[in-house]
Write a protein that binds this DNA or RNA. Structure first.
Length: 606
DNA sequence: TGAAAATGTCATGGG
DNA sequence: TTCCCATGACATTTT
């Protein structure tokens, strides 16, 4: 509290200083309200109003989720949450649909009343004219009306609210400024409110999906921060659990039909010890999500946030990053989870994570992530190889269960010939028909990369497929020389490189072929135009020739009509013709017995 | 479910 | 000779 008072005091001093500066700068045309302390106070109040509104929204959503989850139960066969059938003694009317239960949850008793009271209190406390504005961070949750929260999360019940949230305005009414200075002094809040969206995007070194909601890595952190701010009683484990709510909402964003409470739910089941973790906050969030990811197969955008916040943290590898698949990859991750193992009774795996220790076995994994992005940027054939493609397959690689079929067969993949065209057992288990029921099958590139990556993982290749494929020859040789690889590893690396290179070459070849086809088609068009032009020219020439012949005939007849022999008789054009010699002189040549007359020197020069 | 398109892979030849 | 690339042909997957 002393610190808060100091903050207030310093703020007052700052504002006074700004006032003085304004007086000095007023001549420069600066508006008064820019430096007006009252105006700033008003803005503060506006922001507080937004804060409280968001808080109410969050609470409402939690209540909604809570009520919804009360009506749901996990279908162990499908892994989906389905409306809970009425118990033996039906407490509700039969046939209660999901929407009905949601509506019921909204209209239920005291909760909404608490918010109404809260709203009223807020309206009395903050008679602010505009409430529609929301900060960037605050806006995001409001856009997700379908936010889903964990049933186990410490959702702020109405009973908790007076101490945590709702009592805040009441208690602070005499000294609102001080109370809000407390809030504003929280670094998380300041970070959130001051963090431009683009900064968060920049710190996230890989492109996210087109979904703008996914492109806001600050959003998960924001929710965590919200919990920290508005629930002072929140424990570390609560924070973790709340942080897990964010991906659930993302899950809903991507796949609204699939209940999104699985991660939190499953997390509590599988990782109960996680609440005991007491390390740093970000690390907790990250590891918890990583574990959640491994246990439930649903990556968490929280990790993205953690990645962006602590991009240099050596605590996670790119294998972890592979699992951070927004958008489509979420579904695919779940798909892999539930569909690659149809034998599993539960759609959500609760098996152990045998590869968790092995994830660090890949020393160069951190490079792979960037390399993949470079590949997408530079590889001519990777224009369509979007981010959503990379992550699912990488997740599949990282998914411990994806290896189960291969290992369960007792036939290690390294025993397969590298150049074989047959499909690996792991691939068959993952891609052969039936298992894919919820989502479309993976793309071919996913299959291939997954194949190579799985093989590389199986043979413990210490570098990534992209490194193998895309490194220049010298670098590749240097890399190979730095690692002692056995024959199988060398063969696999060579095959991967050859296949990758040939794949790009084939893509380039096809691209060139298409370009050639397009070029030839263009050339054909131009040639056809040339042909048409020539045909027209020919026709015109024929017309001209015909006209000239007619003119020649007329001139011929005219000349003959003027010619007279010695007796003054005219020559008949039928008996004589006019011929021109090489020297330009024109002769009258008889048509009949020309030779004879020629021999008799009867040629008559004109 | 079959056809067409797209893509991956292998074999081969040339630089 | 080896490596790399281009490309035809075939297989497989996707649409």
């Amino acid at each position: 509290m002393m610190m808060d008072m100091e903050v207030m005091h310093s703020n007052q001093q700052d504002m006074d200083l700004i006032d003085i500066l304004w007086k000095q700068d007023i001549d420069l045309g600066a508006r008064r309200e820019v430096f007006d302390y009252n105006h700033r106070q008003k803005e503060y109040e506006l922001q507080r109003q937004r804060e409280l509104e968001e808080e109410k929204k969050l609470h409402l959503l939690r209540e909604q989720e809570k009520a919804l989850l009360a009506q749901l139960q996990l279908d162990e066969e499908t892994g989906e949450y389905i409306p809970r059938p009425p118990p033996s003694a039906p407490l509700q009317p039969t046939g209660t649909s999901l929407e009905v239960t949601q509506n019921v949850s909204f209209t239920e008793t005291g909760d909404s009343m608490s918010f109404d009271e809260c709203l009223q209190l807020l309206a009395e406390t903050f008679p602010v004219e505009g409430t529609e504005n929301a900060s960037v961070c605050m806006d995001t949750p409001a856009t997700h009306s379908n936010i889903m929260m964990s049933p186990e999360q410490p959702a702020l019940s109405p009973a908790d609210l007076p101490s945590a949230q709702l009592a805040l305005p009441q208690r602070m009414t005499p000294d609102l400024e001080q109370a809000w200075m407390e809030l504003w002094s929280l670094p998380e809040l300041q970070q959130c409110l001051n963090m431009p969206m683009k900064d968060t995007m920049e710190t996230t070194s890989y492109p996210l999906s087109n979904n703008p909601e996914v492109q806001s890595p600050s959003y998960p952190n924001y929710l965590q921060m919200q919990t920290l701010i508005f629930n002072p009683m929140t424990t570390v484990s609560d924070v973790k659990t709340n942080s897990l709510n964010v991906p659930t909402e993302f899950m809903n964003t991507f796949e609204g039909s699939v209940p999104s409470v699985a991660p939190s739910h499953n997390f509590r089941e599988v990782k109960p010890e996680a609440s005991q973790l007491n390390s740093s906050f970000s690390a907790d969030v990250f590891y918890l999500n990583t574990e959640l990811e491994e246990s439930s197969g649903q990556p968490s955008p929280d990790i993205i946030e953690s990645t962006s916040d602590a991009s240099n943290k050596p605590t996670y590898t790119s294998m972890d990053l592979y699992s951070l698949s927004p958008g489509e990859s979420f579904d695919k991750s779940k798909q892999n989870l539930t569909e690659e193992h149809p034998d599993s009774d539960s759609g959500i795996s609760i098996q152990g994570s045998p590869n968790s220790p092995s994830k660090s076995a890949y020393g160069g994994e951190s490079f792979r992530y960037d390399s993949e992005m470079e590949d997408m940027d530079h590889s001519p054939g990777s224009a369509e190889s979007e981010y959503s493609e990379i992550f699912p397959l990488n997740y599949q690689l990282d998914n411990p269960e994806s290896e189960v079929p291969a290992s369960s067969t007792g036939e290690p993949e390294q025993e397969k010939k590298p150049k074989q065209h047959t499909v690996d057992p792991a691939e068959k288990s993952g891609h052969s028909g039936a298992p894919f029921t919820k989502d479309k099958p993976k793309r071919r590139s996913d299959v291939r990369l997954s194949r190579d990556e799985q093989k590389a993982k199986t043979l413990k290749i210490p570098f990534t497929v992209d490194m193998i494929i895309n490194l220049p020859v010298d670098d590749f040789n240097e890399l190979m020389s730095k690692h002692q690889l056995n024959e199988a590893q060398l063969a696999l690396v060579r095959d991967i490189r050859r296949r990758g290179k040939n794949k790009v070459a084939a893509q380039n070849c096809r691209k060139r072929k298409m370009e050639n086809i397009v070029g030839l088609e263009g050339e054909l068009d131009s040639l056809n135009e040339e042909k048409e032009r020539l045909l027209k020219e020919k026709s015109k020439n024929m017309t001209d020739l015909k006209e000239m012949k007619q003119q020649l005939t007329s001139l011929y007849q005219e000349v003959f009509s003027l010619l007279r022999d010695e007796q003054g008789n005219s020559y008949s054009p039928l008996e004589y013709s006019l011929q021109q010699s090489t020297d330009g002189s024109v002769f009258l040549v008889p048509r009949i017995k020309k030779t004879f007359r020629s021999e008799d020197n009867h040629l008559s020069p004109l």
